[in-house]
Amino acid sequence: MVLIKHIGQYVLETLTTLGRLVIFFAKAIAHCFKPPYFYQLILKQVMDIGYYSLPVVGLTTLFSGMVLALQSYNGFTRFSSESAVATVVALSITRELGPVLAGLMVTGRVGSSIAAELGSMKVSDQIDALKILGTNPFDYLIAPRIIACIICLPILVLIGDIIGIFGGFLVGVYKLNFNPSTYLYQTVSYLEPMDIASGLIKASIFGLLLGMMGCFHGYNCNRGAKGVGLATTNAVVSGCILILIFNYLVTELFFSS
């Protein structure tokens, strides 16, 4: 009997959270398209989310491209297919590693900071103060962050793609002794616009997800330092899991045929 009660309670709590998330998602999206727009705040968030995430994303994709070149070279020598290294690096980075790694790294850096910032605003009554001063928090706090995430992630991924491919190039040319022009030719010749576009579309979706999770958990955080800490953790964990799930779904959508 106690077990059934606990299961029922868990199911109810999960459904309640899911329902709140759906309502929050719908409200947030509606406010992204509805004036007033706080352009200065959007610009500030673009700087915070995009510009300051560049080093993290750049380093992650650079070393991933380097490792990928080394690993694929070691594997492909078994089949005498070393020439495919450049193509594999380019495709892997643009289609998968670029968007997923950038998404996960930005979730760790930005999703957590959004949740912590909104959470501490909630705890210190600043969100209520906004309402009393006639400003809807969804216009002033949520929409600028989500819009900035959707704008910044594709730009970060595009830059990350270039840096990642460059990392592969460095290892290919200076460590594995590939001819630089052959490596570049192999990189470009098999890369199709759809490979890059799919990565950028994924990045926009990941931006939406990580922004939404940061805002949702921060906005609904419980009182006290523990509540803010929990909101931050939940924002990162749920953001990362959703990014991995949606990565599969979008890949299935683009490349299943």
């Binding site: 501490s120 605003m121 210190s124 009554d125 600043q126 209520d128 103060a129 906004l130 309402k131 009393i132 001063l133 006639g134 400003t135 809807n136 928090p137 969804f138």
Partner: peptide
């Protein structure tokens, strides 16, 4: 729209000030 209807008429000074950081 989620903002108090009497916002134009009623101001509130919070216990912890609630100034925007």
């Amino acid at each position: 729209d989620g903002t108090p209807v009497a916002a134009n008429s009623i101001s509130y000074v919070f216990q912890n000030s609630a100034l925007f950081d």
